[in-house]
Computed example of a mutant assay.
Amino acid sequence: CDVNGIFKIIGGKWKVLLIKAIAKQCPKRFGELRREMEDMAQTTLTVQLRELERDGILCRQIYAESPPRVEYKLSELGKTLLPVIDMLDSWWISYKSEVK
């Protein structure tokens, strides 16, 4: 198992939170993500979204409007991460109850 490869894609402070936020309301506009991730700098948000798009987890749709509108949604590959994230959430809840 190449754990390092896994964490290159979904590791870090924000990526799993972004995946969960987009999964909850899909598609999600950039401005909505900015408001939801209020502790994240805009440049960090942009970088994280671009990395998730580059890795095939997200799809970005740009609309030629004024002002421009950008929406993000999970790719089919990104959707396969949701059960994994749910399992990690369950493990974390069990871990916290065991180790106090």
Rank of each mutant, 00 (worst) to 15 (best):
S75D: 02
L17Q: 14
K100L: 12
L82V: 06
V16C: 06
C26N: 14
K8R: 13
L45C: 04
K79A: 06
P67L: 01
G11L: 08
I6M: 15
S94P: 00
V84F: 15
I85Q: 02
D2P: 08
L18A: 02
E76L: 13
A23Y: 12
M40W: 08
C59R: 13
L58I: 05
E38V: 10
Q42G: 06
D2W: 06
I57D: 05
A21C: 07
S90Y: 08
W14L: 07
T44H: 06
G5E: 11
R50N: 13
S90W: 06
A64D: 10
G11R: 09
P68E: 08
P68K: 13
S75E: 03
V70K: 06
P68W: 04
K28C: 12
V3C: 07
F30V: 08
Q42R: 14
F30Y: 11
D2S: 11
K15C: 02
G78M: 06
M37R: 03
S97M: 10
F30G: 00
L17W: 04
Q25S: 14
G31A: 07
P67A: 01
V70N: 01
E51Y: 09
S97N: 05
E71R: 01
W14P: 02
Q25P: 00
D89N: 12
D2R: 04
K96E: 12
I22Y: 01
L33P: 01
S66Y: 14
R34Y: 11
L17H: 12
Y72I: 04
Y95R: 01
C1R: 08
Y63G: 00
L77W: 10
K20E: 15
N4T: 11
R35D: 06
E38Q: 14
I22M: 03
E65P: 00
T80L: 09
Q25Y: 10
V99N: 07
I57V: 15
I93W: 00
I6G: 04
K15A: 01
Q48T: 09
E36R: 13
V84W: 11
E76G: 02
I10Q: 00
L18C: 06
S90F: 08
L52G: 01
T43C: 07
R29M: 12
I93F: 04
D89Y: 07
A23C: 03
W91P: 00
L81V: 07
K24C: 07
E32C: 04
R50P: 00
E65I: 10
Q42V: 15
R69Y: 07
P67Y: 10
G31M: 10
P27G: 03
L33D: 03
P27N: 02
C1I: 12
